[in-house]
């Protein structure tokens, strides 16, 4: 199999080849969307190991139901929807657990002024996102971190565009408050 050809092949062709048992073709689908799924799951959950598991689960679920994918929506949108649903379920399960609290800030090192060099953007964003309610977090992650349009975000979350815009506005406001309080930049 010509790898150059696979790299330039569109999603539906790769799916067709994967359905015929070509795992190299499927691995190209994973490679193509890995960065997007990483952005969504890590930003939603914060914990890289859990996000990795959910990322794997996203692609495995797609692999199992690939024959039902007819290309009505973009593959990226489809995978993003699966990933966001899995992360929301994960957050719900964790918040129900008696061992954890809804806002568990212990997972993150609180950025401080003294140690400005090490206050990398990931730490600050993860800490701030964690403080957002999942319904606001999902909109902010899809729209501003992953870069989906408002319409695509609405499609992924199956929400009206108006709801997306209002959640986005409240989420940004809340993030601004949190980042301002941190006073690290």
């Amino acid at each position: 199999m010509d790898l150059k050809y696979l790299k330039s092949t569109d999603d539906l062709k790769l799916i067709e080849k994967s359905l015929a048992g070509d795992m190299v073709a499927f691995s190209y689908i994973v490679r193509r969307y890995e960065a997007m799924i990483a952005k969504i799951t890590i930003s939603m959950i914060g914990n890289k190991d859990d996000a990795d598991d959910i990322g794997q689960e996203t692609f495995i679920r797609f692999y199992r139901s690939m024959d039902k994918f007819k290309g009505e929506s973009q593959l990226g949108t489809y995978l993003a929807r699966t990933a966001i649903n899995l992360t929301l379920n994960h957050i719900k399960k964790r918040s129900k657990s008696w061992l954890t609290t809804t806002n568990n800030y212990d997972d993150y090192e609180l950025p401080s002024k003294e140690n400005e060099e090490s206050n990398d953007i990931t730490n600050i964003i993860n800490y701030s996102l964690k403080a957002l309610e999942p319904k606001f977090r999902s909109v902010v992650v899809l729209r501003h971190i992953q870069g989906f349009s408002t319409k695509e975000t609405a499609d992924i979350l199956r929400l009206p565009q108006g709801t997306v815009l209002s959640r986005l506005s409240r989420g940004q406001e809340k993030l601004k408050e949190i980042i301002t309080k941190l006073d690290v930049l």
Binding site: K39, Q172, I179
Partner: peptide, 27 residues
């Protein structure tokens, strides 16, 4: 960081990634 645009700019620079070998782990 006194306005929303700066928050949005900060968010767009957030680019986390999985550890190496993610595709192999899935396969």
């Amino acid at each position: 960081l006194n306005n929303k645009e700066k928050v949005i700019e900060l968010l767009s620079r957030h680019n986390p990634s999985f550890n190496d070998g993610f595709t192999d782990r899935v396969i």
